[in-house]
């Protein structure tokens, strides 16, 4: 007995911004041609006046409704995020407040691997008998964290939330999370670290900074390694997996991984074209969309794999029920 996902939901900003619009809004020297060729992104959702709490709450309510579970039935709310609207209380507490839950509420920062980290924690809490029903809400308002004058990074990201309700079950067959510590490949400095009255200098606000090529190399090798690890752990052949649900950071990372592993692109669902990289949200958002489109059937095997700042990574295999 491990865990199962019994409901999913999403919360997205209303405003969709195409590459051409983004170019016009930011005034950056970029283009639809560059962004779509180098990343596979055509548009992304960006918050106008929605807060991270709004997105998270919408996703949470939809997932609870889908699962037929009430806020008061929850034992734990886990939010996978690099930061909600307030540093404290946590985003998980903000969601608890909105859905009338009084259970434990905690944020988890696994960056873009946050969903798999959240699943691992949920599986641990449930198998230890500490929780029966867990709400995992992945939420990222990347528009608050990127430097809109930096064309190397701001074109890549989007905003959104995706949630799932987790109970004891047998969907999760295998899970592994880890990190290859690298503090500079992708980083966002803490805005408060130079605030001490004794500090010699004040810190400037930090935004997402990235060494794109180094991250690209990490991403490809992590995905290749983790896919193989999952297959070996369960003694599966690549074809036994029905859907490779991979973090949507850059379509070029996915394409290159597919060609290195010699796999069929048909098994790799994509949504990066419409959302860009929404960090921890990308995989649960894909799962929700695939369910809605009737693409996941009972018995289907899914291999999930993500990597993010840290460099964190995580992968797992699920058999849908």
């Amino acid at each position: 007995m491990t865990i199962s996902i019994i409901g999913t939901g999403v919360g997205l900003p209303a405003r969709e911004v195409s590459n051409d619009e983004l170019t016009a809004i930011t005034g950056l020297d970029t283009s639809d041609q560059w962004i779509s060729t180098m990343t596979g992104i055509s548009s992304r959702r960006i918050c106008v006046d929605e807060t991270a709490t709004d997105l998270a709450t919408t996703a949470a309510r939809a997932a609870l409704l889908d699962a037929g579970v009430q806020g008061e039935d929850l034992d734990y709310i886990l939010c996978a995020t690099i930061g909600g609207d307030t540093r404290t209380p946590s985003l998980a507490c903000a969601v608890a407040d909105q859905i009338s839950a009084t259970c434990a509420a905690l944020d988890v920062n696994g960056a873009c691997a946050g969903f798999v980290y959240g699943l691992d924690l949920a599986a641990s809490l449930i198998s230890a008998g500490r929780a029966r029903t867990i709400l995992l809400v992945c939420t990222e308002k990347m528009s608050a964290h990127v430097d809109w004058t930096d064309r190397n990074t701001c074109v890549l990201f989007g905003d959104g939330a995706a949630a799932c309700v987790i109970t004891a079950g047998s969907m999760l067959k295998q899970i592994h999370v880890g990190a290859i510590p690298d503090m500079t490949a992708i980083t966002m400095r803490n805005r408060m670290s130079g605030n001490s009255p004794l500090a010699p200098t004040r810190d400037e606000p930090g935004y997402v900074e990235m060494d794109g090529k180094r991250v690209f190399k990490y991403a490809v090798s992590i995905m290749e390694h983790e896919v193989q690890r999952c297959l070996d752990a369960l003694d599966l052949a690549p074809d036994d997996i029905d859907h490779y649900v991979i973090h949507q950071a850059n379509k070029r990372i996915i394409d290159f991984t597919i060609s290195r592993l010699g796999l069929s692109p048909d098994k790799f669902p994509l949504n990066i074209d419409r959302y860009g990289n929404i960090s921890a949200v990308s995989i649960p958002l894909l799962l929700h969309e695939m369910r809605g489109q009737g693409k996941i059937h009972p018995g289907d095997k899914l291999l999930l794999c993500a990597f993010g700042a840290g460099m964190t990574y995580g992968s797992c295999v699920m058999e849908w029920e």
């Binding site: 060729t37 180098m38 060494d211 090529k213 180094r214 690209f216 190399k217 490809v220 090798s221 070029r252 290159f256």
Partner: peptide, 24 residues
């Protein structure tokens, strides 16, 4: 080859020659 195809090529060189290449 665009900049990311160059990274792919560098990765192939790394694997074939068993080396690691700093892209800085």
């Amino acid at each position: 080859l665009d900049s990311l195809e160059t990274v792919e090529l560098v990765m192939k060189v790394e694997e074939t020659l068993g080396v690691s290449i700093d892209m800085n």
